[in-house]
Simulated scan of single mutants.
Amino acid sequence: MNMIVGEASYPNLKSYWGQNALGPIQTCMTRSRFEAIKKYFSLRDERERIKKGEPGYDPLFRTRKLVDCLNKRFDSVPKYARLCVDEQMCSTKIKHHLRQYMPNKPLKWGIKLFVLCDSFGYAYRFEIYSGAGDTVVLPGHPDLGASANIVVRLTQTVETFKNHIIYFDNFYTSLPLMVYLRAKGIYSLGTVRGNRIPNDKLPNDIAIDITNVLWKDSKPVRFLFTYVGVKQFQRTTPREGTAKAARFGRKAKRHISIDCPQIVHEYNAHMGGVDLIISEQKHGMLQHEFFIT
């Protein structure tokens, strides 16, 4: 019933039993019974909860097993070669300290998620952002920093040495992360902030090629990558011409195609998977509530 409520957007909960009631909801049970079950429903034994301030405290205690179960099911689907990691806002009206406002996102209010998905918008794994103190490091893996560790956790089930490619933006990109992924046979491509490069040093005992390209468009954008460059890939039947990017021309007063490095074309083509999920949410298809409290 919660899933149907998420798919069919009504003004409030009472509307599903009101004058224009939704048939599957109304005939299943009364509103009072639904609200009673929802009030006392719990996914965990509260006696197992560790109090705040004590070692092992989990702010997502009530939903942790549900998230793990969903990730296991999502992750059972074979992965495409090209994957991306990005943030997603899950729209919700609940009152909770994890709900936040991000003005640059299409969905500005909600719970922030970190998502691993493919270029078509299918999510294989996700994490719920639980605050600045979330610095979990997987056992047996290096500590690469808070943002890079998110990529490490989300890609832990990506097969090694199978020519997978991971795309991410400058929030996650660092040289140690790209070295770590390349050592596992996973290629990567991401934008990077210039001030992150001088502070990072490649390990001396690992010889891995990492290249960077600075492309000056409306503003300078720097890319780090381990599998693609300025030129196109060599193919048995090569494509003619240079990679193109669509930009608005002030003189022509319309969108025009301009030459761009192949790396820019690759990034733009495969980094938008999470935006496809957001697009569906914005049209009311995935308005699910998170019962976190």
Rank of each mutant, 00 (worst) to 15 (best):
70 L>H: 01
146 A>N: 07
1 M>S: 07
17 W>L: 08
197 I>H: 02
240 E>F: 01
149 N>A: 08
65 K>A: 14
246 A>T: 15
172 Y>P: 01
166 I>N: 03
134 D>S: 09
282 K>Y: 02
146 A>P: 05
207 A>L: 12
249 G>Y: 03
270 H>Y: 06
148 A>Y: 00
236 T>L: 15
23 G>Q: 13
262 Q>Y: 15
50 I>S: 04
157 T>Q: 12
103 P>S: 07
222 R>Q: 09
160 T>G: 05
134 D>A: 11
14 K>D: 14
49 R>F: 08
56 G>R: 05
289 E>N: 11
122 Y>H: 04
40 Y>Q: 10
187 Y>E: 10
145 G>M: 04
61 F>K: 04
140 G>K: 05
29 M>E: 11
35 E>Y: 06
261 P>I: 12
22 L>Q: 02
149 N>Q: 08
199 N>D: 11
226 T>Q: 02
47 R>S: 15
161 F>W: 07
119 S>V: 06
37 I>A: 09
211 T>I: 15
292 I>G: 10
273 G>Y: 02
194 G>V: 13
244 K>L: 15
250 R>V: 11
125 R>H: 14
65 K>R: 13
277 I>W: 06
130 S>H: 00
60 L>I: 07
160 T>Q: 12
228 V>Q: 02
2 N>H: 10
82 R>D: 00
48 E>F: 02
53 G>M: 12
168 F>T: 04
99 R>D: 10
17 W>D: 05
131 G>V: 10
47 R>C: 14
116 L>R: 02
119 S>E: 03
43 L>S: 09
225 F>V: 15
212 N>G: 08
177 L>F: 03
119 S>G: 04
68 D>G: 02
209 D>G: 05
240 E>D: 07
90 C>T: 08
235 R>G: 06
216 K>C: 13
52 K>T: 12
284 G>L: 14
195 N>Y: 10
161 F>K: 06
143 D>M: 11
204 N>C: 11
41 F>S: 06
103 P>M: 09
87 E>S: 02
52 K>R: 14
248 F>P: 09
194 G>R: 07
50 I>H: 04
52 K>W: 06
181 L>K: 00
280 E>G: 07
133 G>D: 09
279 S>N: 08
271 M>C: 11
42 S>A: 11
60 L>A: 06
119 S>H: 02
92 T>M: 05
104 N>V: 14
4 I>S: 03
277 I>V: 15
175 L>H: 01
35 E>R: 09
172 Y>R: 03
106 P>E: 09
